[in-house]
């Protein structure tokens, strides 16, 4: 696996997750093992109900695994030391999330949608706005900084959502079908952008997707079937991370 000799930013070891008990028990994840290194873009595929979102929820500290060990940026989470507030803080500081649909707050303009994450992290108003504008410029939507979400096109809104996910310079970026609402051309642009971010910010990106057209953008592709994880050979990334 790529990244030998370096510490994985996301390390999932023997993680299982089940819902219900007895006859009603449903095993959503079974003995999952996964390491993602800085600068890597990893694809997670699988049919509906295979456990992709459950795995993403576990890595995003939204849902606690039933068993196994999860390490994020060197810190073992869910080992009884973590309070709900600590996990929230960890999510705020270390994890950026890109939803399938942008999920922008409809009452904030593009700048504030990005700045809100920084304000929650405790950054001052001026610094937050400055960083938000910088990110919007980086993602080439700076000219739409004052637009409300309903005034943005699908691609623009997704870029603002990506800017929000990057605001706190997270080490881990989780993306849930970020290209689903986009046409193939825009989907490729977004994936290239994510790859550039992984390289520039030395971040690990885990991306759930159904889109066969963008498989060549991943370093590794994992397939989930009935809660079990298989690895597939990648089609080959377009850009090589500079850190490797």
């Amino acid at each position: 696996m790529a990244g030998e000799g370096r510490q994985a930013v996301v390390s999932v070891e023997h993680v299982s997750k089940y819902f219900g008990v007895g006859a009603a028990r449903v095993d959503a994840l079974i003995d999952i093992n996964l390491d993602v290194y800085p600068g890597q873009v990893v694809g997670l595929m699988g049919p509906s109900g295979s456990g992709k979102t459950t795995l993403l929820n576990c890595i995003a500290c939204i849902s606690q695994p039933s068993s196994g060990r999860l390490t994020l940026d060197g810190e073992v989470v869910y080992d009884d030391r973590w309070l709900k507030a600590d996990l929230r803080r960890l999510r705020l500081d270390k994890i950026g999330f890109i939803f399938q649909y942008p999920n922008l707050l409809p009452f904030l303009d593009a700048t504030d949608n990005v700045a809100v994450v920084l304000r929650l992290a405790g950054l001052g108003s001026a610094a937050s706005l400055s960083r938000a504008v910088e990110l919007l410029e980086y993602l080439e939507v700076g000219h739409r900084r004052h637009a409300l979400p309903k005034q943005l096109s699908g691609g623009e809104a997704q870029r603002v959502a990506i800017a929000r996910a990057l605001a706190n310079r997270p080490r881990i970026i989780l993306a849930d079908e970020p290209t689903a609402p986009l046409d193939s051309q825009r989907a490729r642009i977004v994936m290239d952008l994510l790859r550039r971010i992984a390289i520039d910010q030395n971040a690990a990106i885990i991306c759930v997707t159904h889109d066969e057209m963008i498989l060549d953008r991943f370093d590794h592709i994992y397939r989930l079937r009935d809660g079990r994880l298989d690895i597939e050979a990648p089609a080959g990334p377009r850009l090589e991370p500079a850190a490797r």
Binding site: R91, F97, L120
Partner: peptide
């Protein structure tokens, strides 16, 4: 609800 879920997801504390 959706905005609240998003805020919580990105790390907003309950007091917010």
């Amino acid at each position: 609800v959706r905005s609240i879920a998003t805020l919580k997801f990105i790390g907003a504390p309950d007091r917010t």
